[in-house]
């Protein structure tokens, strides 16, 4: 009986962990996407691009630490690298900035997609 109680507690803990990770990944996706959109807007209008990039980087550093607990580290490292690359590009008028933004959004989308319960993720 005690084993069954432990199993139930473990099951509840695992469901809670799963729910938390699902919520957190969705939340991180939304935050990063919104921040990247702000960066793009700032870049296109030519105002405060560096500040927008700094905000995006700061927010990511907070989220990334927890995301590392659930996702392969390589993908979170790639996002960190891409966000760091935005700074030098922010002061240029290169289209590479927008390409880098699209890359970051795509990578966060991949993390989110891998957490969605669907046939593709399962199989």
């Amino acid at each position: 009986m005690s084993r069954l109680i432990i199993a139930i507690i473990l099951a509840v803990a695992l469901i809670a962990l799963s729910g938390f990770s699902y919520y957190f990944v969705n939340n991180a996706y939304k935050t990063v996407s919104d921040n990247i959109e702000l960066c793009k807007k700032a870049f296109l209008s030519g105002e405060n691009t560096v500040n927008a990039c700094q905000n995006a980087k700061d927010d990511w550093e907070k989220k990334g630490k927890i995301l590392d607990l659930f996702t392969p580290h390589s993908i979170t490292d790639e996002i960190s690298e891409s966000l760091a690359r935005l700074y030098p590009l922010a002061e240029t008028e290169s289209d590479e900035f927008l390409a880098e933004c699209a890359k970051i959004k795509q990578k966060v989308k991949i993390i989110k997609r891998d957490f969605q319960i669907n046939l593709r993720s399962i199989f």
């Binding site: 473990l10 695992l14 799963s18 590392d68 607990l69 659930f70 392969p72 390589s74």
Partner: peptide
């Protein structure tokens, strides 16, 4: 080391 430890622990439990 790229894989989060928690994934392994969750699978075990």
């Amino acid at each position: 080391v790229e894989q989060p430890v928690i994934n392994g622990i969750a699978a075990i439990f």
